[in-house]
Structures are given as structure tokens and as C-alpha cells.
Design a protein around this nucleic acid. Structure first.
Lengths: 199, 199
DNA sequence: GTCTATATTGAGATAGAC
DNA sequence: GTCTATCTCAATATAGAC
């Protein structure tokens, strides 16, 4: 049992560790989670984690980098938007919601730490990706304003922020046992859409 | 200089400590702020803080209890609402925004920790106050629905959450050097009001 | 690969002089 | 009231056996 059964086995353990860490980080915070708690969840001793990750920070990075890669993939679809601005905006919001709801832990960690730990140099890729996403939204909003589909009396950046505030909030109190994505999205559009659209 | 000039002097120091701690807690987080950093900001050695507060936690409590008292005071005005539901709701939101913007640090700390540290027994008064505020909002929304002022096809709790998400978000990115309350409130109503009101 | 045992560090808190 | 010096403890990380 001493030699490594090639990569896959190792990767499975890594994934276990990442899953446990993600859950704990989201629930109690990164600082508040100890490597011993992570090890407990996986069923090993804390020292063993260091066979897979050099530091606790590296676990955080692995989680966040994977999440950001997934985010970029999802939003890339929207770069070649042919449809009208309203549908594009609606699909953008659906993408945001889906990304957050399919990775609730990573999203919670990201939101919680964006203004703190993730503002440091070593996490620069996170605010970077967030800014990228903002630009995609802004392009759609500006296009919609030009076409007359989206009201022009609200500054695009303000509109984007308000939309994201609602989406982030929804992701925060969303409970998969009680709600479902379609229902939240549609009710959400009742509230926001009529405010955002031209009369 | 050895003897205490009665209470006021002592209170002033306490206030200095609370101000420094509030700023640091909001900026870097509670766990991430050390008592030495607080002491540095005040211009004393860390040991001296313990003449005013028994523990670091007690500083957090002092900050939060004062904030909650202020919140309750502000919202009490709305308990004897005579006006129509729309104006009442609008005034409620203004109250929320003002409270958050006048105590940006306390608000940032509260928002940041509500799902974590403040979920514990000893901070029970915080979620308690938040629930109280929710009830005040809900009463106004339900009254408005009954009067036909506010649309009835959105669950009141959902509407409340969406409103608070927007307000909290605004408080987060609000920059006193760039924005002012009136401007934010009015632009905010352009977005939200038309979605919330009946046609 | 995982364990036991331990080194190291950082932060909250205390004691006692001044 | 504030300082200096120090205690204590918890948590990350390491070393080496198995």
C-alpha cells in the first residue's frame, strides 16, 4: 500500500479535502476553520493534509482558482451576444444565479472575503475576474440603452451594482430545500425587470 | 496625572478605543485585528486596553450594543405610521440607509459577522433586532398590499429581502466622497419603486 | 500515504512596577 | 492610568517512524 496508484487516487483525496474545506470555510469562515477540523471531516490526522497541500492558504487558492475558472467559462458564452439586450441581460442574471447556486460554498467564501483577505496582492486574480464580469454586464446594459430597450436615466454602473446586490443577496438566503432557481429568477424579474426596463 | 478626573475622562478614552476598534474591525475583520493594532491606533500599549475592557470580545459587544440601540431608536418612529404604505415604505428605506451610512463601520461589522460569529448565543440580541426590523417592514408591506398600494403578486418576505439586499449593497459600495444620500435614495427608487408598486 | 510527536509562532490576557 | 514583561494557549506547520 506504500506506492502511489497513479494520479487519480491522489486527485480523489485532494477533492475530498477541498470539499470538506469548502464546506467549513463557507460555514464558519477561513480564519475560524482549523486544519484539524478539515482533517476530522476527511477522516485523517491534520499532518496528513500537508502531503497534499503545502499550506492552508494553498487550499484556499485551489478552491478559489477552480471557481474563478468556472465563472470565466460560464460568462464567456455571453461575449458573442446576438440577441436583444433584454434577453441578454436576463440570461446574464440567470448565469450569475446558477453559478452562485451550483457552487454555494465557493460563492459564500468569495463574497465574504472579497473586501478583506482577497483584497491582498496574492489574490489579485479574484477582483480581476469580478471586474471582467462587470464589463460584460456593462456592455449589455449600454447596448440596451442605445437600442432603447433599457432605461437611460440610470447610470449603467449603478444599475449593474443594484442587479448584483439583488443576485448576491438571493444567493445568500436561497435555500435549496425551499426554493428553486426558476421560481427565484422569475419572482426576481417581477421586482427588478419592471424597474429596469423602459416603460 | 495619577488620579482619575471623574467619569468623563475615562469615557473619552473608552470612546477613542471603540472608534479605533470599529474602524479596524470593519476594515480588516474582527479576527484579523489584534489588540496591539487597536492600541497602536489609540497611542497606548496593548496592556492598557484591559483597564477599560476585560476582553477583546467586550469591545465588540460595546460597539454592537450601542449600534443596535441606535437602530431600535430609529425604527421606533415607524411604529405609529399614519401615512399611506408607499410613503411609509419609502421612509423606512431612508431610515435603513441613513443608519447604515451614519455608522458605516458598525454596519460593515454587523453585515460581515451576522452569519458567523454573531450567530452564537452570546450575540443573540443582534439577529433579534434584525428580526424586529423585518417585522416592521412586513407590517408596512402587508398594509400596502391590503390598500392596493403595493403589488400583491410578490410574497412580502421576498419583497423585504430584496429591498434589504439592495440597501445593504448600496451601503457597501457607497462612497461619501462621490455619492450623497439623497442621490442614492432617489436613483434607488427609480429602480426599485416601479417594480414594487402596483401598475 | 498516514501517523505521532513536536517545533514555532502569534495573539489574548495578566501581574506588578511606576 | 499606563507601561514592561511575561504567561498561556491555540493553531499552523514540520520531522521522522511506520
Amino acid at each position: 500500500m506504500a506506492e502511489a496508484t497513479d494520479a487519480p487516487q491522489r486527485d480523489r483525496r485532494r477533492a475530498e479535502i477541498l470539499a470538506a474545506a469548502g464546506r467549513l470555510f463557507a460555514e464558519r469562515g477561513i480564519r475560524e476553520t482549523t486544519v484539524r477540523q478539515i482533517a476530522d471531516q476527511v477522516g485523517v490526522m491534520s499532518g496528513s493534509l500537508y502531503y497534499y497541500f503545502a499550506t492552508k492558504q494553498e487550499i484556499v487558492h485551489a478552491l478559489m482558482r477552480a471557481y474563478v475558472e468556472d465563472l470565466v467559462d460560464r460568462y464567456c458564452i455571453h461575449l458573442s451576444g446576438e440577441a436583444d439586450a433584454r434577453s441578454q441581460l436576463q440570461r446574464l442574471v440567470k448565469t450569475s444565479l446558477e453559478a452562485m447556486l451550483e457552487h454555494p460554498h465557493e460563492n459564500a467564501i468569495l463574497q465574504h472575503e472579497l473586501g478583506r483577505m482577497f483584497r491582498t496582492e496574492e489574490f489579485a486574480y479574484l477582483p480581476g475576474a469580478v471586474a471582467q464580469i462587470e464589463e460584460i454586464y456593462l456592455a449589455v446594459i449600454r447596448e440596451g440603452v442605445k437600442e432603447g430597450d433599457i432605461r437611460s436615466d440610470i447610470e449603467p454602473r449603478f444599475m449593474f451594482r443594484t442587479i448584483m446586490d439583488v443576485v448576491k443577496g438571493a444567493a445568500y438566503w436561497y435555500d435549496p430545500d425551499v426554493h428553486d432557481v426558476e421560481q427565484v429568477t422569475s419572482t426576481w424579474w417581477k421586482v427588478l425587470g419592471r424597474g429596469v426596463y423602459s416603460p
